[in-house]
Simulated scan of single mutants.
Amino acid sequence: MTTSLARRVYETCHLAGSFRLRSGQVSAEYFDKYLFEGQPGLLREVAEAMVEELPECDVLAGMEMGGIPIATVLSQLTGLPTIFVRKQAKEYGTGKAAEGGPVDGRRVVVIEDVVTTGGALLASCRQLRAGGALIDTVVCAIDREQGGRENLAAEGLRLRAALSRRDLESSLSA
């Protein structure tokens, strides 16, 4: 991770105001990851930084919705297949929670954009594990450093992040 990448991500996606997070917490700042995910060059640079955090695995699992574009670029960079994980299983068609291929008995790394408390990740990892996925690592673009790492660790999941809140904030003074 370079300071210049952290600065560009911060300048692109940091918003100030009052924001309700998925966790229910209210924050005075928000990292709108869609602002960097919509920029092809910056998305690729973030994904390249995330490649360095990937352990050996068989499949990438992109979390709906922000993890999907990142997982897709990671798949292009690494040649690894990707599945796409829904927040809820479809109530029609195949009724799957994860689309794109099998996970049973495969080493899966879950890909997320921003991690705050890890609540959505925990639910999805449980669901994937119930389908036979072998998961011990989650890789994210930004760790907000608000308890996600510890919450994931409590369920045997290691969080690796390309960027942390600290990286983003310290890039402004560098």
Score class of each variant (00 low, 15 high):
residue 34 Y to K: 12
residue 35 L to D: 10
residue 36 F to G: 03
residue 36 F to R: 00
residue 36 F to Y: 14
residue 37 E to D: 14
residue 37 E to R: 00
residue 38 G to V: 03
residue 39 Q to K: 12
residue 40 P to S: 02
residue 40 P to Q: 01
residue 41 G to S: 03
residue 42 L to K: 09
residue 43 L to H: 03
residue 44 R to Y: 01
residue 45 E to Q: 15
residue 46 V to D: 05
residue 46 V to W: 02
residue 46 V to A: 13
residue 47 A to V: 08
residue 48 E to P: 00
residue 49 A to S: 15
residue 51 V to G: 09
residue 51 V to T: 14
residue 51 V to R: 05
residue 52 E to W: 09
residue 52 E to Q: 15
residue 53 E to S: 13
residue 53 E to V: 14
residue 54 L to V: 13
residue 55 P to W: 00
residue 56 E to I: 13
residue 56 E to M: 14
residue 57 C to R: 13
residue 57 C to L: 01
residue 57 C to D: 00
residue 58 D to A: 07
residue 60 L to V: 06
residue 60 L to M: 01
residue 60 L to G: 07
residue 62 G to K: 01
residue 62 G to F: 09
residue 63 M to C: 10
residue 63 M to L: 15
residue 63 M to F: 03
residue 63 M to N: 11
residue 64 E to C: 09
residue 65 M to Q: 04
residue 66 G to N: 05
residue 66 G to F: 09
residue 66 G to C: 11
residue 67 G to T: 12
residue 67 G to C: 09
residue 67 G to N: 02
residue 68 I to R: 03
residue 68 I to H: 00
residue 68 I to W: 07
residue 69 P to Y: 05
residue 69 P to H: 09
residue 69 P to S: 02
residue 71 A to G: 12
residue 71 A to T: 04
residue 71 A to C: 04
residue 72 T to C: 01
residue 73 V to A: 01
residue 73 V to K: 04
residue 74 L to C: 04
residue 74 L to N: 03
residue 75 S to T: 10
residue 75 S to R: 07
residue 75 S to D: 08
residue 75 S to P: 09
residue 75 S to E: 13
residue 75 S to W: 00
residue 76 Q to A: 11
residue 76 Q to M: 12
residue 77 L to K: 05
residue 79 G to Y: 01
residue 80 L to S: 07
residue 80 L to W: 02
residue 81 P to C: 12
residue 82 T to Y: 04
residue 83 I to L: 07
residue 84 F to D: 13
residue 84 F to E: 05
residue 84 F to A: 10
residue 85 V to H: 08
residue 85 V to G: 07
residue 85 V to F: 11
residue 86 R to P: 13
residue 86 R to G: 11
residue 87 K to N: 07
residue 87 K to W: 00
residue 88 Q to W: 00
residue 88 Q to K: 10
residue 88 Q to T: 14
residue 90 K to N: 11
residue 90 K to Y: 02
residue 90 K to Q: 05
residue 91 E to N: 14
residue 92 Y to E: 04
residue 92 Y to T: 13
residue 93 G to P: 07
residue 93 G to D: 06
residue 94 T to S: 15
residue 94 T to M: 14
residue 94 T to A: 15
residue 97 A to W: 02
residue 98 A to K: 09
residue 98 A to D: 11
residue 99 E to P: 10
residue 100 G to W: 09
residue 100 G to N: 04
residue 100 G to C: 04
residue 100 G to S: 11
residue 101 G to C: 15
residue 102 P to C: 15
residue 102 P to Q: 14
residue 103 V to T: 09
residue 104 D to V: 14
residue 106 R to G: 07
residue 106 R to C: 03
residue 106 R to A: 09
residue 107 R to F: 01
residue 107 R to W: 02
residue 108 V to Q: 13
residue 108 V to Y: 02
residue 109 V to C: 06
residue 109 V to G: 12
residue 109 V to M: 04
residue 110 V to E: 06
residue 111 I to S: 04
residue 111 I to Y: 03
residue 111 I to K: 01
residue 111 I to V: 10
residue 112 E to C: 10
